[in-house]
Simulated assay, not measured.
Amino acid sequence: MSLKPAVSKTDHIQGKKDASIVIVEYGDYQCPYCGAAYPVLKEMMKKYGKQIKFVFRNFPLSEMHQYARPAAIVAEATALQGKFWEMHDAIYENQRILSEPFLLELVEKLELDPHQFNVDIKKSELAAKVDSDFESGILSGVNGTPSFFVNGRKFNAGAEDLLQLMSEIVK
């Protein structure tokens, strides 16, 4: 399966913007497998972040994970204040205690403008962005999380395998 749509400026991007290797993760903030993949992906970015572009797209499995969608919307709201990756990391690093009150604690810890956050969190475009990410995952053949794409092609293995692949192809 191939990635639809291609990575664009609406995506959350880390690493080298014009890299020849582009990795897209479809993730769910409450998924234990995504939580297990998180430190592996952090290691990958530490080692290869100057040579690869990493993209995160929301794929909340709301029927199984009640806080996945609220977490995704909070992360999108923090993105409007330039702190998406800080929130993304904080959620995964504290995944076991994820709750709506805890998400608001993270907003305070990241020193976001609370008034602006309260305005932003109500914006319908945040839910629309989460839904758009989810729909793009469905179109791309995502059927679970985490799901990875390397240069637009579905990577049918886990984060450890992805790290191994990067060690072989990134020089």
Rank of each mutant, 00 (worst) to 15 (best):
Met1Trp: 10
Leu3Ile: 08
Leu3Gly: 07
Pro5Ala: 05
Pro5Lys: 07
Ala6Arg: 13
Val7Asp: 03
Ser8Met: 10
Ser8Ile: 11
Thr10Cys: 04
His12Tyr: 07
Gln14Thr: 12
Lys17Gly: 08
Lys17Asn: 13
Asp18Ala: 14
Asp18Arg: 10
Asp18Trp: 06
Val24Thr: 14
Cys31Trp: 06
Cys31Met: 10
Tyr33Leu: 10
Tyr33Gln: 10
Tyr33Thr: 12
Tyr33Lys: 12
Cys34Trp: 04
Cys34Pro: 12
Ala36Pro: 05
Ala37Gly: 10
Ala37Glu: 09
Tyr38Phe: 15
Pro39Ala: 09
Pro39Cys: 06
Val40Met: 07
Val40Glu: 11
Lys42Phe: 08
Lys42Asp: 08
Glu43Pro: 10
Met44Gln: 07
Met44Ser: 13
Lys46Met: 08
Lys47Val: 02
Tyr48Arg: 11
Lys50Met: 02
Ile52Lys: 06
Val55Tyr: 02
Val55Cys: 03
Phe56Ala: 01
Asn58Tyr: 07
Asn58Met: 06
Asn58Phe: 07
Phe59Val: 01
Leu61Asp: 02
Leu61Arg: 15
Ser62Trp: 06
Tyr67Ile: 02
Ala68Cys: 10
Arg69Trp: 06
Pro70Cys: 05
Pro70Thr: 02
Ala71Gln: 02
Ala71Ile: 01
Ala72Val: 02
Ala72Arg: 07
Ile73Gly: 01
Ile73His: 02
Val74Met: 04
Val74Ser: 03
Ala75Pro: 05
Thr78Ile: 09
Thr78Glu: 10
Ala79Pro: 06
Gln81Asn: 00
Gly82Leu: 09
Lys83His: 01
Phe84Cys: 01
Trp85Gln: 01
Trp85Ser: 00
Glu86His: 03
His88Val: 08
Asp89Gln: 11
Asp89Val: 03
Ala90Ser: 13
Ile91Met: 02
Ile91Gly: 04
Glu93Met: 09
Gln95Tyr: 05
Arg96Val: 09
Arg96Trp: 04
Leu98Ile: 14
Glu100Asp: 13
Leu103Lys: 11
Leu103Phe: 04
Leu103Asp: 00
Glu105Val: 11
Glu105Leu: 13
Leu106Glu: 05
Leu106Thr: 04
Lys109Pro: 11
Leu110Val: 00
Asp113Met: 03
Pro114Met: 10
His115Gln: 14
His115Trp: 08
Gln116Phe: 07
Asn118Phe: 08
Val119Phe: 06
Asp120Glu: 14
Asp120Asn: 14
Asp120Gln: 13
Lys122Thr: 14
Lys123Tyr: 06
Lys123Ala: 15
Lys123Ser: 14
Leu126Met: 05
Lys129Val: 03
Val130Ala: 04
Val130Thr: 07
Asp131Asn: 15
Asp131Ala: 13
Asp131Met: 08
Phe134Cys: 00
Phe134Trp: 11
Gly137His: 02
Ile138Phe: 07
Leu139Asp: 15
Leu139Phe: 08
Gly141Trp: 03
Thr145Pro: 04
Pro146Cys: 00
Pro146Trp: 00
Phe149Ser: 01
Asn151His: 08
Asn151Gly: 05
Asn151Phe: 06
Asn151Tyr: 03
Arg153Ala: 14
Arg153Gln: 14
Arg153Pro: 00
Phe155Tyr: 13
Phe155Lys: 05
Ala157Met: 11
Gly158Leu: 04
Ala159Asp: 09
Glu160Gln: 15
Glu160Trp: 02
Leu162Ser: 05
Leu165Tyr: 09
Met166Leu: 15
Ser167Glu: 15
Glu168Asp: 13
Glu168Met: 12
Val170Leu: 04
Lys171Pro: 14
